[in-house]
Each structure stands twice: as C-alpha cells, then as structure tokens.
C-alpha cells in the first residue's frame, strides 16, 4: 500500500480536499477582514491587495475599546484555572496512586465522576450559590467553576499516567530523606511533564471558548470574556461586515498561537498513552 504511487496520489487527494474544507472558511474570513464592505461583497474570493485593502474593520474593533479588557479577562480566567487544575489535579492523583488508605478507590471514582456528568446541569444551584457568596459578576466565580470542571479529566489522566510509572524513583528519594512535599514537587511533577501539555490543552480550550458560564455567571461589562464579548459585539454590528470579520479574526488569533506552541507536545502526550480509552 505504501509503495503504490497510484494509491499514494489518491490518499493525498483525499487529505488535501479535506484540508481545504477545514481551512477554507477560516481563510475566507481572514482575507475579507482586510477589505471594505464594498470589497467584501464585490470580490469575496480575492486577496486584500491594492484598492481592495482596507483596515477599517480592525479600526472599528479597536475603537470599541473593550477588547483588550475582554482579552485580559479571558487570559486571567484561563491561566489561573489552568494552574489550579494542573497543580491540584496532580496533587490528588499523586495521593491516590501513592498512599494506600481506606476509601482510596471510592474517592478516586468520585473525583472522576465529573467526566460523565457535566457541571452545566448544576447551573441553577451554582448561580444561587454565587449569589449567596456575593461572587456574581466576578472572575473568581468563573475560575472556581472551571477548576471544578477541569479537575476530573486532569485527575484521570494523571492517575493513569502515574500508575504506569515505576515507584522506584520515589522510594529512592524517600531513602535520601526527602520530605513527602519535596518528593511531589521535585520528583513527581517533573515525572508527569509529558502529559501536562495534553491536560493543559484539553482543559484550556473549553475554558477559553465557553459561552455558557460567562453568559450566566458574569455577563457584566467589566468581567466579560472574549467569547462573550465577541458574541455581544457581533450582535450589535451585524451591518458592519468589516468590523464583524475583523472581530472574528481577532478572536481566532490567541487560540491559534497557543495551539502552535503546544501542538507537538499535545500529540506526543496523546500517543504516549495518556488517552487510552
């Protein structure tokens, strides 16, 4: 199969065709975001060169003024949640695999229940809880929810991975007299590095892209995330196509950058057996 040039051409045709299908919508938006409304309608497939080029769309996005704030909010929420998910998840997984105690198995099962039962189903009670705590319209509420949402998957992947790692390193560290805390930070954390990227990407994407919780828990002007901000912005500017397309392009960029940075490690983590099904 590998050596047959005909089937090789067929395979690459299929792959290229699907690549076009996956990329075409994104490229279309990106090139048209640099055109004026006239250009967008007159010549949608052309590159934004010569008199087609216009940066008006981006200017009106920037003039709106709130996007840096939205980006900041999303960045804060995503990063802090991510740190909590990775650190607390790794700590829990370490305890579950390292210490034998009564109820260990049951607690492990309890902690990964959340993979199967989406936290969104508790939205009604979550909102009441945050009202009581006085945390509505704060980024803290989002961080807490996303941490709780991300922990089960992180604990599951870390536990599976730690089970496959030999305990000898930890035992020799113990003989060397390292405290349990130092063993975790100096031995276990470096040990799980291969799957950290996988957990990070899989936790990060749903947080950055979420519309549900920002819409319900923190819709206020000052705490809007990018996803919610874009949703509202586009709702207001449906006639200003240049601005809409520019806003969409702006929203795509950060995720794209994160993906490019993490993609190699992500694949390595997945194929290293972190996700075995």
């Amino acid at each position: 199969m590998r050596n047959n040039p005909l089937s090789s051409i067929a395979i690459h045709s299929v792959l290229i065709l699907y690549s076009l299908l996956a990329l075409f919508p994104l490229v279309l938006i990106a090139i048209n975001s640099f055109k004026s409304k006239k250009g967008i309608f007159r010549d949608p497939m052309a590159l934004p060169l010569g008199d087609l080029y216009s940066s008006k769309g981006y200017q009106s996005v920037l003039a709106n003024g709130d996007f840096p704030l939205y980006f900041g909010n999303s960045l804060i929420v995503t990063l802090i949640s991510l740190v909590f998910i990775l650190l607390l998840g790794a700590m829990a997984a370490h305890a579950l695999t390292e210490f034998r105690f009564k109820g260990n198995g049951l607690l492990g099962l309890y902690l990964i229940l959340g993979i199967m039962v989406p936290i969104r189903l508790g939205t009604v009670a979550l909102l009441e809880l945050f009202v009581k705590l006085g945390l509505t319209n704060t980024l803290t509420a989002l961080v807490l929810v996303y941490t709780a949402q991300g922990l089960p998957i992180a604990i599951f992947i870390f536990t599976e991975f730690l089970k496959s790692v030999s305990g000898e390193i930890k035992d020799s560290a113990r003989i060397d007299g390292l405290s349990e805390y130092r063993i975790f930070f100096e031995v276990v954390l470096p040990l799980i590095r291969p799957v950290i990227a996988t957990v990070a990407v899989f936790s990060m994407i749903p947080i950055w892209n979420d519309l549900w919780f920002p819409l319900i828990l923190s819709p206020g002007e000052g705490t809007r995330t990018v996803t919610l901000g874009i949703q509202q912005f586009i709702g207001q500017y449906t006639v200003n196509w240049s601005a809409v397309l520019a806003a969409l392009s702006v929203a795509i960029m950060p995720v794209l950058v994160m993906y490019v940075i993490f993609s190699k490690q992500l694949i390595r983590g997945i194929t290293a057996g972190a996700v075995k099904g």
Binding site: M91, A92, P152
Partner: peptide
Amino acid sequence: ATLIYTIFAIYPIAE
C-alpha cells in the same frame, strides 16, 4: 481538589 470539586461541581448538581 476534593473540596473545590465537591462545592462547585457535585453540590450544585445534587442541589
């Protein structure tokens, strides 16, 4: 981990 998960994931669903 257990506390955050219980308060902000399990409790709301049960409630």
